[in-house]
Design a protein around this nucleic acid. Structure first.
Lengths: 343, 343
DNA sequence: ATCGATGCCGCAAACGTCTGCATAATTTTT
DNA sequence: AAAAATTATGCAGACGTTTGCGGCATCGAT
């Protein structure tokens, strides 16, 4: 059953005027008498007229819709980003259509295609872990199509990016561990192909060097999936085999940190007395853990809002991609909790 | 900068045929020679032709898009529902446009409006905590517009709903606590205006009665916000003032359960030895807590998938709203972990 | 040679809205 | 009183697709 929606034509017929007049009256165009405007608006109200956005899109070749592509909504961080995106988009009269890639490249590509088919005005993208080739995006960028990348950003010339300062956040977290007296600080790192993984690793290394701690390659362990089970396995492995044991872990994300904590408990090690732990992203559960987990908070809402503002400015030609700075960096905040404070 | 997209007309001009022919050739309609089809398809490929979904929507008065309205994406449960929705929608050729209401009625209403403006083919709705009047939905239902409600469902005649068996899940969880030897089982309940809150309360009461435990009204405490801080406050209050102390808590959701656990720890009570705790929803963090939290798992993905299947069937007229059963109930699963097993 | 059937394709209208241009009616200016 | 300016409205075409209908060949059968 289709919804019988009143159209401009219906109003026009009823009032014995042309659809042009109705269209202009509704939009308060000049050159329409106040009397006519009043009648049109009244009837529109009465007939519960609702403009057909599809027809408008076709006519204007603009859909007032932006496409958002993210890896997974279940990630707390991404879900806060979404809120920021919606907030700005709605307040500026845009709709949001969203798809998650589930970290699959194929899904990412097909999402791009169907969104383009739907004539979206621009993209907001955080790409999948599988994505190493950015042709499907750079092709569009070359044609001048508006895209803003956030969080996970590509290394493409001229792409507009919004990121958090992973390096600094990572540096601060590592420094905090050092100042607390931890010395043998291991790093559970993320998948190396992601730029954020590299940045977080760099921050960690820089902090160690700056504080005169000689850094060992064996202290860095990659944890590609980044979930707690993987991290737990890896940590157990380390705690059981390594001759010189770690006394702290700085983790690429909070899930990994949980894995580390579980492994430590299993080995009878006390946190934070024997082992310090710091995570990244500040998931909701950080405060619920025992001990509560120190973490680097990423401003998800702000990132979503900022990225959207930039994208809409580009779409509305308020800024020019070629002229604008192309990477916007947001600050993180280190939240110190019990897991990293020696008593 | 707009994307210069090739249209059917462009292909037609290039090949000296009419747009009708191109349209039909692309869709393998009968009555077009194989030769022409080949040429059209080849050129379409070469020109990177992508159908304009907007034009199609206008022509067909169908957008192949469904609108999803949920309270908040940060809720783990809802984010899994979204995955289920996307999965089914995409596989059946539909797009998804999503908005969160942030539990605000005004936002819910305006979302309905803009989505209707965008000619969506149907709604998938879990309404906000503020919503007590369902006129904005029942009006549409009366006109035969396809809507499926999930999780939070209204008590409207003829509305099609997908829910989990809150009663049974709640009953099983409470029974489990009883069988573990807990007797003075308190219930931290959700906002009373939500049907799910009522159902969970009923299940809890029924379990107690069936096992000969005399039920006291003071054992049920409403926790409207449902976050851990609120629950913690309330629990501390109970533990400090009540003369006859509880020996277990069955909570309306996992966040509340965390609050209970924090309060117990603060009071020096051991879980599960002194106090048993069971939550609801099985958030990711349940396994990360210490002790791990027993919880009633809701099949979020399945719920999203099921609701979408039903909605699309209604849209495509495969089923008739009047004839079909109108409430689909999915089973929950009690996941017993350490927080509720006396050792 | 005629007829009917069949295969291939184009015309034109429609979906709902906007907008440049023309037109008609009214008022102002000279 | 005629010309010019202003005001209020309508016409028609466009955005990109689909689709009912009709037209023109070609072919086989009678």
């Amino acid at each position: 059953m289709k919804l019988e929606q009143a159209t401009i034509k219906d109003i026009a017929r009823e009032l014995n005027v042309s659809s042009s007049t109705v269209s202009r009256a509704l939009k308060d165009y000049p050159g329409i008498s106040d009397e006519t405007k009043r009648k049109v608006k009244e009837l529109a109200e009465k007939m519960n007229y609702r403009p057909n956005a599809i027809a408008l899109s076709l006519r204007k070749s603009r859909s007032f819709t932006i496409g958002v592509i993210i890896p997974e909504v279940v990630h707390f961080f991404f879900s806060t980003v979404i809120s920021g995106i919606e907030e700005v988009a709605f307040s500026r009269g845009y709709n949001v259509i969203l798809t998650q890639t589930n970290e699959k490249l194929a899904r990412e590509k097909s999402s791009v295609d169907t969104m383009l088919s739907n004539q979206i005005d621009g993209f907001l993208v955080s790409y999948s872990k599988e994505t190493t080739d950015f042709n499907h995006f750079s092709r569009l960028l070359d044609q001048g199509f508006p895209i803003v990348f956030f969080d996970r950003v590509p290394e493409i010339e001229d792409s507009v990016n919004v990121v958090v300062d992973d390096f600094k956040g990572s540096y601060e977290a590592s420094k905090h561990l050092i100042l607390q007296g931890y010395r043998r600080i291991y790093h559970i790192s993320g998948p190396v192909q992601l730029k954020i993984s590299k940045e977080r690793l760099r921050g960690y290394q820089a902090a160690l060097e700056d504080h005169g701690i000689k850094f060992e390659n064996s202290w860095v362990i990659e944890c590609p999936r980044g979930d707690e089970n993987e991290a737990k396995e890896i940590t157990l492995e380390i705690l059981k085999t390594n001759s010189e044991k770690p006394d702290a872990f700085f983790c690429h994300n909070d899930m990994a940190a949980v894995g580390v904590m579980m492994a430590c408990k299993e080995m009878g090690l006390k946190i934070p007395q024997d082992i310090g732990v710091v995570g990244f992203s500040n998931w909701q559960f950080c405060t619920m853990l025992d001990p509560s987990l120190s973490s680097v908070a990423q401003p998800g809402f702000k990132m979503g809002a900022k990225a959207t503002e930039i994208l809409l400015d580009i779409i509305e030609k308020k800024i020019n991609t070629k002229e604008t700075q192309n990477t916007f960096v947001l600050d993180t905040e280190l939240l110190v909790r019990k897991s990293s404070v020696k008593i």
